[in-house]
Design a binder for these strands. Sequence first.
RNA 1: CGGAGCGUAGCGCAGCCCGGUAGCGCACUACACUGGGGGUGUAGGGGUCGUGGGUUCGAAUCCCGCCGCUCCGACCA
Length: 441
Amino acid sequence: MRLSQYFLPILKENPKEAEIVSHRLMLRAGMIRQQSAGIYSWLPLGKRVLDKVNDIIRQEQNRAGAHEILMPTIQSADLWNESGRYDDYGKEMLRINDRQDRPMLYGPTNEEMVTDIFRSYVRSYKELPLNLYHIQTKFRDEIRPRFGTMRSREFIMKDAYSFDLNKEDAEFAYYKMFTAYLRTFDRLGLRAIPMRADTGPIGGDLSHEFIILADTGESEVFCHKKFLGFDIPEEDVDFSDRAKMKAIFDEWTEYYAATSEMHDEAAFGAIDASEQVSDRGIEVGHIFYFGTKYSAKMGAKVMGPDGREHEVHMGSYGIGPTRLVPAIIEASHDDNGIIWPESVAPFDVGIINMKVGDETCDEASMKIYSELQKAGLDVLIDDRDERAGGKFATADLIGVPEQIVVGPRGMKTGEVEVKNRKSGERESLTLEAAINKLTAG
RNA sequence: CGGAGCGUAGCGCAGCCCGGUAGCGCACUACACUGGGGGUGUAGGGGUCGUGGGUUCGAAUCCCGCCGCUCCGACCA
């Protein structure tokens, strides 16, 4: 992408409404634009990151055996009357009437709808297990939206729903999602710690929140230091291996970890003081097993091997991509801007042409640009007719992981400077060496 | 929803107390000079002062209503 032709409305000054660093940087880097309280547009740079986050989530959900669907944002109140939640949900649910004056709502979650899909088609235990998910916009009319897309009213959520014949199978489904979540957050460059959670209005008795530690987190969290060193399940982990899934779950839930709502001071105090971690955290995922809560009310039943009908056991599994993006920034930035993990960086490489209009610089920049693109990299070339300082600042702000500086000084010896955003290391290389270095990975 | 505050050019702000026809920095446009970490000069463009009403010869400024937004608290992916 040529920056001169891109839409990247960066801000030099800090927007006054942005209190936390991720919100400030997302606005400054031209990733998002607030349209209303808790409602945001995603601009090109932000959209690129969001798409990469979603892709990783999608890959890991699929790997764990879930199937992607897409349910609508607008739902009929009828389904919610079946579950009883139309009355229970309260003002957080945006209620609207269509032109026939039928009560509708903008979905805050999709248990009812997915249960309706399930009961319409699935009759036999032989079709289980089943896990359906979608990545869709939700609306929850939060009392107080804040922190940019970290807590917005309109947001995108990946929500998966598992259906099983009995509790044992449902727990297996839960462990699979648990494992998929560990892998997902790891690939996003985050260390997420599963903590026992309150099940809240969704109900149920097995639930974990995935929390990442960050000073600007919303809630206080407490856990054992061991979590920081646990290994993440490998890419080839066998999701059909019940014993393995259970083992992973057990390993990751053996030690103390709780948010302030679930905190047990005595249990935490029993941990050696040097092993205690007490910090603030951001909730980036939440998983629940809630048994037959919805299947019972909505008649989602399958025939079992015993020739009798069974209400299916369900679980739901949420990740908030529009919250993950700021969470990643909270976890990874410096005074100059964002430091993206490579897996979600909007561009892999930034080329800084320091003297646009200078024939040698222009040619060298374009050569690198086309070679790297040929190698399949996402490249952003700063070909604006601007001072170098502004270009460096822009590259650092938007956090491109590798920067190639093409300037008249280096061109005298045919060299460019390759700089790593995260480490700050720089080295001068010939054109070919620079291209080779960046295409090698 | 309770408490606090803000709304003046794209962004950040001054002007309001004490009424007299709107200003600063950045950004933007043109040209020139520049070019290794947000440059310099010259010349420009851009504002229903959130909105409706009231007071007044005259309102960004005073009064009343409404709308929007932010921050603190209780709730949430």
